[in-house]
Design a protein around this nucleic acid. Structure first.
Lengths: 354, 354
DNA sequence: CTGTTAGCGCCTTCAG
DNA sequence: CTGAAGGCGCTAACAG
């Protein structure tokens, strides 16, 4: 009776369903549901409860995700849209988010921002149909497709949180004090006696890049240095662009005695450029970079950086997103702990004598 | 009538459902479904079809994922379990998988292997309940929890594919010829005249490490070098371990004139170790690493590597997984295109005179 | 204390 | 050519 149809090749789709447990325990499905979900409002005779639990155990029952999600109109799934997964920084964000989400019982869908937003027609719909309870938007770039996606997203009323990205009208967001981090790096150099401090900045469109540039300028002003004396070269995350930017800065006369770089990867390129041109680091020019990683210790020379609380950032973003999903309307969050810290290594030193 | 209950704070859960479209078009839900899904078996009066399409457009209808998935008992979702997301190699796998999955209309769930397998009690159940159509298992490590998870997985009959990981009984898997890549690296060094070629190998438990070690030995044998003369130091993916391993190798007498390293990150540490000990690369010792990345160009010295088809690997893995889901039983796949290629940079050179 | 019932949103026979 | 109805697996309201 349970499953007729002699031996048709059609296997039961779900090995064991709630109803199977109920039948086995000789009760109705609803108590089974309540017992298994530990519904506190329901009181069940200990004996029945035991029978149910045992039946479930024997049958190896596991609630079917889709059935439950459909019923609850909640998918317990979050999506992270993130660019440049190969970059350490973004990898850290992904890892933090995955962990935080898992800790709260949520699964995490990942989509490459470039693909996702570029092929907005193909990928985006995938996620916009109740598949996901909320979005984490990482990455600082603004593009047409990104904006279009945001419009869709807002219209769809799916909660979202921007991570490390402050864009007018995109709220809430969770970010760090990038400006402060950069300012601290500048201060470190100022304390070493540097006055001509240049900056390899990121693309204008990246708001993290803008905030770091601002921190750089603030650092100069705080030291009483005219920002007009500042030298800024643009780069992307690519090592090769950092390399090219550094070459431009090294041609300036008078030459800067220190360079702060907006990203680790660009700094790797910058170090190489100095080397190739016979410029000693830190003998002739000091170099410092934004964001820390294990690798920094092993570069030549080892690289002074400012370490930012990336992991906490991403944990916090998940938390805020879950709050939004729960109905809260938190404002923007700027993480202030742990504070950025300068990790001094060999790439920065006193101003050269000359 | 459509939605009574005056103005209760309960908003309609789904903005617009199939039924809404049907009502608007003045038809039944079933034709709407067929039209929207372009069911070829159904013939619909062009006029009705038009009315339906227009209604859907006007209302901004989008099929609800959970409803559809429940009905189809398919979630069009894949999960990737992957370790060390911060590592370039794994980032590449993730990216390839995300892209390939998206291209096929699948979403990709990501879970950190360490967390996932460690907290098998917490995270794993999340994915084992119809939430996911198949698993991609990346990473070469074998651990108790990993094995336990595999057992669960097999029992649950959810399709899976191992990526870049060959473990007895875990099939199908999609992998590359790591041994060949390593052998090519050794051959490159042999052609430069090296005879004392050492190896910084990965952990015994990592099967990629084992295969690379095997390739290293094969390379020596092919050159008529006694593998007994080989020197192998163990390391992990950490730069610091690569550093330590290199120091051990540099103490050997006679000292090796070349070192091939099982991973990029370990090689970064190895380069630093040589530098610190005043050993010139490639003047005194040549260094070459497995796997390529943009960064390699900018290290000091720039690093000779072998480039492996990681992107293709991961694309292929998705394809194979989808085949399995579709009912095929493909065997193990070893990717042979594009073939590994040695990228010669400055870290390898002729044998030192002495 | 426990069972019945009514859907969540969709697709798909089966009738008309 | 189109509509009505049933059910994917689960939970929650309402009866007993």
């Amino acid at each position: 009776m349970g499953r007729p149809r002699t031996a048709k090749p059609t296997a039961p789709r779900q090995p064991v369903r709630l109803a199977d447990v109920a039948e086995r325990a000789g009760v109705g499905t609803s108590i089974v549901s309540r017992v298994l979900n530990e519904d506190p409002t329901a009181s069940v005779r200990p004996e029945t409860r035991e029978r149910i639990l045992e039946a479930a155990r024997n049958l190896g029952y596991r609630p079917h995700f889709l059935g439950r999600a459909l019923r609850a109109t909640r998918s317990t799934t979050l999506a992270l849209i993130i660019p440049h997964l190969a970059d350490t920084v973004n990898a850290a964000i992904l890892r933090g988010a995955a962990r935080a989400a898992a800790a709260q019982g949520y699964a995490l869908l990942v989509s490459d921002a470039d693909d996702f937003l570029a092929g907005a027609d193909a990928a985006a719909p995938l996620l916009l149909d109740g598949r996901v309870d909320g979005f984490l938007l990482a990455g600082g770039e603004t593009s047409d497709t990104a904006t279009r996606f945001l419009t869709d997203l807002r219209r769809s009323a799916i909660p979202f949180v921007a991570v490390n990205r402050r864009i007018a009208g995109v709220e809430p967001n969770v970010s760090m004090d990038d400006a402060l981090g950069m300012e601290m790096l500048v201060r470190h150099l100022v304390e070493l006696g540097h006055r001509r401090i240049a900056h390899i900045a990121g693309p204008e469109e990246a708001d993290t890049a803008r905030r770091r540039l601002e921190g750089y300028r603030r650092g100069l002003r705080a030291a009483g240095l005219r920002t007009s004396s500042s030298a800024v070269a643009r780069s992307t995350l690519d090592e090769s662009e950092g390399h090219a930017a550094m070459e431009r800065l090294l041609e300036l006369r008078p030459r800067p005695t220190a360079v702060v770089v907006w990203s680790l990867s660009a700094a790797v390129g910058a170090l190489a450029a100095a080397r190739e041109h016979g410029i000693a680091v830190p003998g002739d020019v000091s170099v410092a970079a934004f964001h820390d990683a294990p690798m920094c210790e092993f570069l030549e020379p080892s690289l002074t950086t400012v370490r930012m609380p990336l992991y906490e950032l991403s944990q916090m973003a998940v938390q805020v997103l879950l709050d939004v999903i729960a109905g809260a309307s938190p404002g923007n969050v700027v993480l202030d702990a742990p504070a950025p810290s300068v990790v001094v290594r060999r790439s920065t030193g006193p101003v050269p004598a000359a």
